[in-house]
Structures are given as structure tokens and as C-alpha cells.
């Protein structure tokens, strides 16, 4: 486990420093913690690092092995190394098409979800209105529904709408986009509300006094001030759509199939191409992992303001 050891060594080498004067809640006491605490920390964090990273290491190392090395006993170090899996993945199954479908669906769903959530969050954070509590509760309650309960009715509704109006929702990317955008909507509204609350009201009130309408105040003042949060929520919405499986398997057909379903194709062949599966897993993970790690800071900030309230 070279990567795990690396992180562990870096941590062990570091002398303890108290994060002084960097805002509230950072750092705990004035005294250095006792050895019992330091040792607990080293051991527990090393174990958790191994737990978190071993699967990632397995993915990366197996993707660099030739096929015969992933079908026999597991070996820690890939030898010989080959990049052929990264070439082959595009031809064993139509990965390019799945990738494009996922990209279209997830991007549209994320953009639409955030656009809708911005207005809803603006209403919740800036206006008092009747039914506000019911709305926020109902939106969060949708998180509770088992997906399986509305997968079939939604499927039937989409088919009926298609038959009645000729708008193809079933089997099309459009249907999947609408479905996915509502999946990330509750969380997006909740997070954006807490971001908007952190924008001082005086700012948009000043804009209103200057003659802006509420919509212009939202676009000129509130959105620019909450932009990091909006980006974080967009990435989250993208990830939600990118990783969803149940509706992708019910609502798509051969031409609109997304990665979430398409990756299974590698193992329905006579041979299970584990090296290609691992290479493909890595390729489909890179966009979301990169996005998530870039925005984690903002996500914590949004959760914090939500938690403090």
C-alpha cells in the first residue's frame, strides 16, 4: 500500500501545532494532548486511511494489469504494467456513447436543478409566506420515499404522457433529466437557503432601494455573493445524477443507456474483463471525484451554516 503508507508517514512526521486564532472551533485546548490521545489518533487514522484507500488502490493497480493477471490469484503489485485496458474499454462495449449520455443527462439535470433551486431558496430565505414550513418539510420528506415505490408509477406516467402528447419521456434523455433534477432538488434548496441566509440582507435591500426588482436583486447581488455555494451545489447535483442506477435501468433503452447501467456490460460477456472494468470505473470516476474534492470546502461551509442555525 504505497499511497496509504505515504499519507501515514507524512502525518507521523508532522509535529503538533495548535491552530491558534484561525476562527472559532479550530483546535481544542491550550495544552498539548497526552500521548494516549496522540497514539489513538495515529492508529485509528492509519486504519481508516487503509480502509478508504485499499479499494482505490485495487482499482488503479488492477486497471494496469493484463487480463490473465486479474483472473488468477490477486497480486498486490502489477507486473507487467500495461495500459491496454484503457484502450480496450472503448471497444468492448460502447463506452463512448454511455459516457456521452451520462454527460448530457447529468449536466442538464444539474443545471436545471440549481436554476429551479435558486428561485425556491431565494423565496424561502427572503420572504415570509404562508405554507413555508409545509413546503420545506415536504421537500425534505421526499428524501424518505423508497425509490422503488415511485419508479414504476413514474414509468407508467411517462409512458402515458408520451402516448397522449407525443412527447417521448420514457426511453429518452429528457425523462431521465426531469427525474434526476428532482432527486438533487431537496438538498439543493436546503443548501442554497443556508448559503443565501449567510448573504447579508442589507445587500439586497440596498439594491431594492436603488430600484432593482427582486429578480434583479437576486441576480445582481445574492447570486454573485453565494457563487461558491452555487457551484458546490451544482457539482453535488451532477454527482447525484451521475451515480443513479435504479431509474437509469428502468427508463433508458439501448441508445440512451447511461454509464450507471452500461458498466455492467463488461461482465455479461463470456469472460469477465476485470482489468477493463477497473479501468472504466476509474475513467467514469475521475470527473466526479475531481469536482467533489474541489468543492468539499464549500460543502463544509454550507453544512456548517446549516448546522449552526
Amino acid at each position: 500500500m504505497p499511497s496509504g503508507l505515504g499519507a501515514g508517514a507524512a502525518r507521523r512526521a508532522g509535529p503538533r501545532r495548535r491552530g491558534r486564532g484561525r476562527g472559532r472551533g479550530r483546535g481544542r485546548g491550550l495544552m498539548a494532548p497526552p500521548p494516549s490521545f496522540i497514539w489513538t489518533r495515529r492508529i485509528v487514522l492509519t486504519l481508516l486511511t487503509l480502509f478508504a484507500l485499499i479499494p482505490v488502490y485495487v482499482m488503479v493497480s488492477s486497471s494496469l494489469k493484463p487480463l490473465q493477471d486479474v483472473t488468477s490469484t490477486f497480486r498486490w503489485i502489477p507486473d507487467p504494467l500495461t495500459l491496454s485496458a484503457y484502450h480496450d474499454i472503448w471497444f468492448t462495449v460502447p463506452l463512448g456513447r454511455y459516457f456521452l449520455n451520462s454527460l448530457i443527462v447529468s449536466t442538464s439535470a444539474a443545471a436545471a436543478s440549481v436554476a429551479v433551486a435558486i428561485f425556491a431558496a431565494y423565496a424561502v430565505s427572503r420572504y415570509g409566506f404562508r405554507g413555508k414550513r409545509i413546503f420545506t418539510t415536504a421537500v425534505l420528506a421526499t428524501q424518505m420515499f423508497p425509490g422503488i415505490l415511485f419508479a414504476l408509477p413514474l414509468f407508467l406516467i411517462f409512458v402515458s404522457i408520451g402516448n397522449a402528447t407525443g412527447i417521448p419521456l420514457y426511453g429518452s434523455r429528457g425523462g431521465l433529466i426531469i427525474t434526476y433534477l428532482t432527486f438533487s432538488l431537496p438538498f439543493a434548496i436546503w443548501m442554497l437557503t443556508s448559503y443565501f441566509e449567510s448573504v447579508p440582507r442589507a445587500l439586497d435591500e440596498a439594491a431594492l432601494v436603488d430600484g432593482c426588482g427582486p429578480v434583479r436583486a437576486l441576480f445582481r447581488v445574492v447570486i454573485p455573493a453565494a457563487l461558491p455555494g452555487i457551484i458546490a451545489v451544482t457539482i453535488y447535483a451532477f454527482m447525484t445524477a451521475w451515480g443513479e442506477v435504479l431509474f437509469a435501468s428502468v427508463m433508458t433503452n439501448n441508445t440512451t443507456r447511461t454509464l450507471a447501467v452500461g458498466l455492467a456490460d463488461y461482465s455479461t460477456q463470456n469472460n469477465v474483463y476485470w482489468n477493463q472494468i477497473m479501468a472504466a470505473s476509474l475513467v467514469v470516476s475521475v470527473p466526479v471525484v475531481a469536482g467533489f474534492l474541489l468543492m468539499q470546502r464549500y460543502l463544509v461551509a454550507g453544512l456548517t451554516s446549516g448546522a449552526v442555525k
Partner: peptide
């Protein structure tokens, strides 16, 4: 355990969050 700052804390945070960032189906396949 990562509440106090120490060297490598940022890297650890990133490592710990990686499993959550991976698409679910990819992690289950792994």
C-alpha cells in the same frame, strides 16, 4: 481526531472523502 490541525490533516480529509465522491456503482463494482 482531525479536529486539531496537524500536518497532513488536509490530505487525510481528502482521502477520507474519496469513497463518498466515487459514483456508487463504481465503488460497488470495485
Amino acid at each position: 481526531l482531525t479536529q486539531d490541525s496537524f500536518r497532513g490533516r488536509g490530505a487525510l480529509r481528502t482521502i477520507f472523502l474519496t469513497p463518498f465522491a466515487l459514483p456508487v456503482y463504481a465503488s460497488v463494482i470495485i
